[in-house]
Amino acid sequence: MEEIIDELYEIYKNIEQDSELKREDVTPELRIKEDLGLNSIGLLYLVMGIEKAFCISLKNSSIESFITIGDVAKYLEENA
């Protein structure tokens, strides 16, 4: 799971290059909308980055179920 979170952090840093969030601060409990400070376009961009990096296709219903980074990492662990 840590490797997946590393990769998610890399994708996030590409999207929000001005963000001061460090890798140590990214825990599975980190909330995607509230803590990462992404607007709707940012979220869409993050999802596209995840799809490209993990060669996976995410549906609206799957995306809506992602509250924390841990939810995303767990989904990717099972499906990617």
Binding site: L43, L44, V47, L58, N60, I63
Partner: peptide
């Protein structure tokens, strides 16, 4: 009003 990724 939602992140309509499928439409995108």
């Amino acid at each position: 009003y939602s992140n309509d990724k499928e439409a995108f």
